[in-house]
Structures are given as C-alpha cells and as structure tokens.
Amino acid sequence: MINDRETTTTAWIERSLPAADLEGWRRSYTALLPAGLHWDLARMPLATWERIRRARTRLGLPVLETRGRPVIYDPTCGTVYVPIPVGSVIPGVCVLRAGTWLLVHHPSHPAAPGRWLSWPARPYRLIDATALATAVATIPAPRTAIEDRS
C-alpha cells in the first residue's frame, strides 16, 4: 500500500533525476541523484548530525527545521547527507557539488543502505544552509575517551 510519505518522496526523487534516468528508476526503484543540479549535499558523520540535533534544544540554537526536508543516512559508512541549496557553504562540513551522485532507494525499502531520516514533503524545501552552518559552528566538540574517564 502506498502512503503519502512514499508518494511525496518518490515524486521528489523523480523531480531530482535527469529525465533520461526515469525509466531505470521506475524499473529498479534505485536511483543515482546528481548533486549540483537541484541541490548540493552537506556530508557529515552521523555523530555530528546527532550532536546538532541534541544541541539544538539544549543550547537554544536557532531552529534547524528538518520536518518535510530530505535527510538521508548511509549506515554502511555512518554518513548523513543533507540536500542544501546549490552553492551553499558550510564551514567545517564537506559540501558535495556537481559531479557527485547520491544513491537512494524507494521509500518502501527500509532495509536498503540509504535510510531516510527526514522525508521530503510538499512543498519541496531544503534545510536552510545558514541555520545548518550556525548549528555546526556552535555544537560542542565531541568528548574524547580521556574526558569520558574523568
């Protein structure tokens, strides 16, 4: 059964695909989405993403709105990919641009390598790169093993 989340996520993927790749997507429900066309990708370790999410409420950071904005996690390498507006700069974060591809799967395949941490919703919006940059700049540094023992 297809639900609204699947419908909007599938539509977002199809909107992000080059037209020539639509047939392959509809056959396999796996797609390589090109960065630099509709969005760039902020790439960060899951631990950084989790520190941002925790610090947001603890430190009273500006709201980093994620609801209805795509965020993808790849557990095979522990990496989070955040689509952001093309040309955005986030100091301290690797931003992937044109020439980079993001592997995504149909949302009804939860065991696939790329997991949706936040699903796209209409109207299609991206995470605000300025808010993300502010969050990255103000999150506490990760604790070291030595600090944890004290």
Rank of each mutant, 00 (worst) to 15 (best):
V71T: 03
A145L: 10
E50V: 06
R115Y: 00
L32P: 00
T57F: 11
V89H: 14
P107N: 01
L61S: 11
G36M: 04
L61Y: 05
L59Q: 13
R67P: 00
T130Y: 01
P70C: 14
I13H: 01
T57P: 00
A145F: 01
V93K: 06
M1R: 14
W12K: 10
L32K: 07
L96F: 05
Y73G: 13
P110R: 07
W101Y: 10
G114H: 13
V93N: 05
L117D: 07
R5F: 11
E6D: 13
T144E: 03
L132V: 06
L41K: 04
T57N: 13
A35M: 03
W39D: 09
P75R: 06
S118Y: 07
P107C: 08
Y81D: 07
R15Q: 14
S118P: 01
A19D: 08
S28W: 15
L22A: 08
A133N: 10
L46K: 11
E14K: 15
W39S: 10
V93W: 02
T100M: 10
S150I: 08
D40S: 06
Y124R: 03
M44V: 03
T100H: 15
I2Q: 15
R53H: 10
R125N: 09
I146S: 08
P142T: 07
L17E: 00
A55K: 01
D74A: 11
A98C: 01
P120D: 10
A47Y: 03
E65A: 15
G24Q: 11
M44W: 01
A31S: 05
R67W: 13
R51P: 00
G78M: 04
W116Y: 15
T30K: 09
I139F: 10
I84T: 09
R125I: 02
P123D: 05
R15P: 01
L117M: 06
E147L: 05
E50Y: 02
Y73Q: 12
H106T: 00
R115A: 11
T8L: 11
H105I: 04
I84Q: 06
L46F: 10
T48P: 00
S150M: 04
P123Q: 08
L103N: 09
E147Y: 01
R122Q: 12
P45R: 08
I90K: 14
G68K: 06
G24H: 11
Y81H: 14
T130L: 13
C94V: 14
S88F: 05
D4F: 04
L22E: 00
L96Q: 13
G36V: 02
V104P: 02
R5H: 04
I84W: 06
P140C: 01
A135D: 03
H105E: 12
V82G: 02
